[in-house]
Design a protein around this nucleic acid. Structure first.
Lengths: 123, 123
DNA sequence: CCTAAAGTATCATCGTCTGATACTTTGTCA
DNA sequence: TGACAAAGTATCAGACGATGATACTTTAGG
């Protein structure tokens, strides 16, 4: 379902959270769908179940999923959106462009990447 | 020169590094320019000089600046670029779009942000 | 030379991430 | 209806990393 990088600097739980956020945003999983159990997903990813549980809890705090003891975790209705501040998003856009520039990529490359993302989700 | 957020999750040294990277990429400081001393910048930001020193060392490892004991730190010629993998940049683009979508921003918002960045640097 | 100012090294502290383990709740089926 | 399996949750210890106080080394200039 998702993939993580054990060597990356970002914490595992954070990676799991981000990957699931992306999957939800892109419609790969829809509201009402069951997520794998923490043990299942942890097993698939070869990490501890607590790490997955932490990701789920964060997503719940963001209103993206709902967990119930003994039952499981399902994707929530997306009415209650977790609002990322505009300022932060613009900062990330800025850093992204700066890094691309320093890495020698061209304006055209970046535009292509951008437009491919625009086609992916339900924009 | 730059600003950092003491409450953010990303480490201080990393924030400093990213901010300076951005300043270099956007041409705010040019090759040959002196950066503030680690004590100076640390004082301005109210953080420890080691934290700034670590950021400088990372930037040197990336080939963006050159440090010399007793002399200072200077922005390097940008011939030796630090290459960020294409895969990582696309991943960041993807996460950014996903977050924006979940936060309720529109395609138009994102396009506007993107094009403003395109105008900023020396693309 | 001697001093001020630059980067560098060392080390202690503290927080946070991760994982092992045990607990609680829920649904189901004999 | 009781037992069991499977789900999320809680607790706690170990490890690792980030930060800062302090001392060291190098450089330039008077």
């Amino acid at each position: 379902m998702i993939r993580i990088d054990l060597t990356a600097a970002t914490p595992l739980a954070e990676q799991v959270r981000l990957a699931l956020r992306r999957a939800i945003a892109e419609g790969e999983v829809a509201p009402g769908d069951e997520l794998p159990s923490v043990r299942q997903l942890a097993g698939d990813l070869s990490i501890n179940l607590n790490t997955v549980a932490r990701a789920y809890r964060e997503l719940e705090r963001e209103g993206l999923v709902v967990s119930h003891r003994g039952r499981g975790t399902v994707v929530a209705s997306l009415k209650s959106k977790s609002r990322v501040p505009r300022k932060e998003l613009r900062g990330r856009m800025r850093d992204l462009c700066a890094d691309a520039l320093l890495s020698g990529y061209l304006r055209g490359d970046l535009e292509q990447w951008f437009h491919k993302e625009m086609k992916r989700g339900s924009w």
